[in-house]
Design a protein around this nucleic acid. Structure first.
Lengths: 400, 400
DNA sequence: CAAATTATGTCCGAAGTTGAACATTGTCTG
DNA sequence: CAGACAATGTTCAACTTCGGACATAATTTG
């Protein structure tokens, strides 16, 4: 395997720039890290010699000699990315520039327990490696996203409501049996935020990624880095109270957004509307499937169904109330909304926007942009891959 | 004047450590910035030669030669600190180690307008300088705290509710007429947070300082630095809604904490209780002064007055609801509560604590410490002084 | 008081950094 | 298509910085 340890600070800085920009010419690279041409070239030569970076073809000229693109070398190794969802597992192998080598998404029941789920994960990874002829030793780092609170340093889950029993299972140790590479575990929203951060090329300094599904979580990028808080539980916005007189939440308090506007709450409202005969369309969808999903509600909403629209607007309004509090406190430049419930469509986003802009201070919303997470397939595994690269290659040795 | 410009990165790092620690021996200093002894000694010699630092006496031995303390030299210059309150102005001169050279606190009416207020500020500063024989040129930096939202880069106020008309006045330009030193302006809560951060020697990474007075504001220290948000309005927690069915706030929305638990709301509740005959003690205090202050309410509460206690608990409960939302989102290690309303006493703090712990997630409150700001006189001007030092001496040249 | 301990000061070969000259490879113009 | 021009890549001798070894200094301990 290529030796990517023992990097000097300068070399690491170059790798970091290449990772975030996707590729630069020697001149641009030197300028972007404020190195002299000679210093930069020395480090570049060292990295080229060790095959950590490679030349990636000449770019169009801007009036003189054409610059030669430098980029992270595919030969240096691969990253393994694992994204555990409430009902699915995604496993992928990625090159250091975050291009997908292989990707499998499968339905899975997390209630089967962590050992079974990770036995499957390891199987999938092994199959992928064999298909592409990649030895276990060539895996440089492993990133894992899980739908629950994680103590980042230990990599252990802490009282995960959706993953009962997982708090005693060490994902790190399980994967260490097969891989020497370091394993980093974080919750799915931080992963999503990190992936978004990378896709935006690290341009934004302070933004939020909200994931609305069975629960509601929030990934925070602050000063350009993932913010995890003191106990790693920052961004747990699902239990922010938006109505003291609201319904009781399973957490014991009343009026949590999660109890009023997350997937289950929305489905319940839709089913109630269907039973009450407020919407023939929802009734029809309910009778067909036995349950109503956010997608069903979205279809009804897009078809102009009045009852569906009312539910979507109400849910968006509650989310907006919660976000208004967060915006007043954090003053982010952007909020990206993702998760299953985001699929209910444009009216949901519009309702959230209206509610936030109405309730937040003018100064905080002057430049605030609220939009859906730019959906790409495999967003989860890319975020996990970014974390793996960051923590293994780009962090100082003290983090390894 | 001493030349403190043109510092190398290494020298700046040493100064920064000395500023935050208050003084270190050569060995400790070298270790704390991870320099070799030779490198550190070279920089130390340079700084000593330019009289930016000085030797401050030997410390007790720990078994061998006694270490010689190094500290920022008083001779390098002074900082000017200005803290504008709603009804008072504080002006001070500080040494680089944040010891007070002189300090004046005066009542002032900010409604008289910024030009008049700052004419007085300049007068006070000039008097102080003359008394201590300090030329204007020896002022290294000026820090200003104001009770309203500030665009940090421009130093201008933005739609300040408490300071009408101030948004067109440039504090920076006004002081530049007399001082060549750079001027930094920030809102009073950030200043308070920065001062607290310095008093705790920069130990805490993520914490909040809540100021409850006429309004409610919050200073945020995130990743060890003041977090101001995208538009500089981060921490504006006063208009977080804690009860959608609550009373109308002057901001146009219903149920803002500020409308339910800040100084005016508490006074109103206390006066209502007095008029309703619920408390003889409050009635007596009201009759004596015509109004009721947080201090009056605190005295009644400490005397065991039931009506006063009920009000204090109610207000603390609302503050706690707001903080619970913020804690779920931000997961700080500490929350410090200050401002005039903090004077109502221990029951207020207890009510806040109870409300927060009840409504926040267990994981977030496991290590959470909520207490009053460790009150020292002149906390405001010290915070402003810390900002001045940080932004002038310790920030890279690109910030100046 | 000798030996051990701790802190500080100095030196020098090794390693890193730099700017500027030089080399290379392209475009553009007449 | 020659020659001017422009951007990029490479080399090198002068210069700066570094880290460890060694020397010195002040105390405590036995």
């Amino acid at each position: 395997m290529v030796d990517w340890h023992h990097l000097s600070d300068g070399e690491r800085a170059l790798l970091e720039r290449l990772f975030w920009t996707g590729g630069l010419s020697r001149g641009d690279l030197a300028a972007s890290v404020d190195f002299s041409k000679s210093k930069a070239n020395m480090a570049i030569a060292s990295l080229l010699g060790r095959e950590l970076i490679e030349e990636g073809g000449v770019q169009p000229s801007t009036g003189g000699r054409r610059p030669e693109l430098l980029r992270l070398s595919h030969g240096m190794g691969v990253l393994a990315a694992i994204d555990i969802g409430a009902t699915s597992i995604d496993v992928a192998l990625l090159a250091p520039d975050m291009t997908l080598i292989d990707h499998r998404s499968e339905a899975a029941d997390v209630h089967a327990g962590a050992p079974l789920v990770f036995a499957r994960v390891r199987n999938l990874l092994r199959q992928m490696r064999e298909r592409h002829d990649i030895a276990a030793g060539r895996v440089l780092g492993i990133g894992v996203g899980v739908p629950g609170p994680v103590a980042f340093d230990s990599g252990m889950l802490v009282n995960p409501p959706l993953l009962p029993g997982w708090e005693t299972f060490s994902i790190r140790d399980c994967l260490a049996e097969e891989y020497a590479a370091p394993v980093f575990v974080d919750n799915d929203v931080n992963i999503m935020a990190l992936g978004t951060h990378w896709r935006l090329r690290g341009q934004l300094r302070n933004f939020l990624v909200i994931k609305i599904g069975t629960g509601i979580g929030c990934g925070i990028i602050c000063h350009g880095a993932v913010y995890r808080g003191t106990d790693g539980s920052a961004g747990d916005v699902g239990h922010i109270c938006v109505d003291p007189h609201g319904p009781l939440c399973h957490c014991g308090n009343a009026g949590c957004v999660e109890a009023m506007a997350a997937g289950p709450a929305i489905a319940r409202m839709a089913e109630a509307a269907a039973h009450a005969g407020e919407s023939a369309l929802l009734k029809e969808l309910l009778d067909r499937n036995g349950v109503l999903s956010p997608m069903d509600l979205g279809n009804a909403s897009r078809a102009g169904d009045a009852a569906a629209n009312a539910i979507v607007q109400q849910a968006g309004g509650w989310i907006g109330r919660m976000l208004a509090a967060v915006v007043n406190f954090f003053n982010p430049s952007h909020i990206f909304i993702g998760g299953g419930v985001a699929k209910v469509g444009p009216l949901f986003l519009a309702s959230i926007r209206q509610s936030v802009y109405q309730r937040s201070l003018a100064l905080s919303t002057r430049h605030l942009d609220i939009q859906y997470v730019p959906q790409v397939e495999s967003a989860g595994v890319i975020g996990a891959g970014v974390m793996a690269v960051q923590e293994t290659m780009l962090a100082g040795p003290e983090r390894r």
